[in-house]
Write a protein that binds this DNA or RNA. Structure first.
Lengths: 255, 255
DNA sequence: TGATGTGAAGTCTTTCACAGCG
DNA sequence: CGCTGTGAAAGACTTCACATCA
């Protein structure tokens, strides 16, 4: 998931497994929906279904947080929402900067889910002087010359990189030097950061390639030519989360 | 709601571990960069560094594909590019539809990495009649009434959902019914699909929350001192470190 | 000689299955 | 009685370390 390139070992966080941390937002979303419907309690079974995981996993996950349920009853929705929010650090405000206000950066700036939970777009930064001052999603774009000052003035510790691949590492370096310790990278490139800095990547291209891999398999197994199909051609489904790096590769095809 | 959730057994595809599949695109990207620089061969060490993984992992990953290296020398770049491309199914054309042409959908449509590698945006679909006919990224948006026909006419098996959360499941259902078997979901919601359909999700909000979790820990563990110094990125102790002080204020929850 | 390929060991994650509490 | 919480078992993934071979 993240952290310095210098392969960091198991980054267990305060005893909570990374896999569990990655699911907490999922649970939180499901719980929030229940909360809005004024549902008072949920069983692990119900909540698990809503979050798309199995109930044993969910209970195990929650066990890392503490014993927040009631046997024979389930979990108190409001209480759990609060506990998970706190665990995730969402009870505080996180100013975020987005660097690279192109199509994607602008879409991210406009994305509602951003501001929704503790995250606040503190500034938009772009290297193009022509963009400076132009408002995007109601926020004026600032020039990257002022990146360091912007980070410091706003106490930003989370940065989102939505620049072209080539600009990503330099931007990353500047963000880190200015004090950013968490980066969400949308550029199709691997970022190198010092220890203590977390990087998560989101990469359309990688996700598509993974889908293509499975898709190819399905096609191959479905109707195996004219022979008898090996069992049924099913499997997998479910959903997944995760990050994904990489990005650009023309299809070459030597012999 | 068929939650065919009954544990899908395999997490492996054709003997290739899922974790490995997820890294192949990374290797491919690194290899392509080398190829463009006309580098003839790479060692596992070099390639691993470029892809941001460790060399043992990379060698193990490649071992699932076959023995494509030469002892004492390394891997032939062009040959590996081809082998991985083939394994990922990138030697064929994958028509893709994007449903939901809002800020994000439009950004995705414009994203170059899309078309670059075997993936081709076959159609853009939106529910807003006002969008119909309007070209985005040079492709005219079509109305969702015609979704099924569009899927079938173009032989689409991969769909990208960039609609608001509420529309995602219905759109997903229609895509699947029309023949789509792989879905990349950008909507912040859990999709339920029948077995045999793959879903991968990309969720900004979840990624940020995961970062916030770690960020919060850094701040708390830093120097159990006063305020947290920004610039100096402290590192997290690797390994174990089970003990996370984090004596957060025992929270009382909101009623 | 030098780097791959790979059993084996180690670590993390998921799942099972049931004790135990409300 | 129902559902949580959790040891224990199973499984997946990573890392080690070295035999192996070009």
């Amino acid at each position: 998931m993240a952290t310095g390139r210098t392969h960091r070992p198991a980054t267990r966080s305060r005893g909570i497994p990374e896999a569990t941390v990655a699911r907490l937002p999922l649970y939180l979303r499901a719980l929030t929906a229940l909360s809005e419907r004024s549902v008072p309690t949920v069983s692990s079974e119900e909540l698990a279904a809503a979050a798309g995981v199995n109930s044993a996993k969910l209970r195990k996950d929650f066990s890392y947080l503490g014993s927040y349920g009631t046997r024979g009853v389930g979990y108190d929705v409001e209480y759990l929402v609060y506990q998970i929010s706190r665990e995730l650090g969402l009870t505080q405000d996180w100013p975020v900067v987005i660097v690279g206000i192109g199509n994607l950066g602008a879409a991210l700036a406009n994305y509602g889910g951003f501001a929704s939970r503790g995250f606040r777009v503190a500034a938009l930064i772009d290297a193009d002087p022509a963009m400076a001052g132009k408002p995007v999603a109601g926020i004026p774009v600032q020039h990257s010359d002022d990146l360091e000052k912007i980070i410091q003035d706003n106490g930003v510790s989370i940065g989102v990189i939505a620049t072209p691949a080539g600009a990503a590492q330099p931007v990353c370096d500047r963000l880190v030097a200015a004090g950013v310790t968490s980066i969400l990278n949308f550029a199709p490139t691997v970022l190198t950061v010092p220890d203590g800095v977390d990087v998560r990547k989101v990469d359309l291209s990688i996700e598509l390639q993974i889908l293509a891999f499975h898709e190819q398999r399905k096609a191959g197994e479905e109707h195996p030519d004219g022979a008898a199909p090996p069992a049924a051609a099913r499997e997998e489904s479910d959903e997944s989360a995760d990050q994904g790096p990489d990005g650009d590769v023309p299809a070459v095809m030597p012999a």
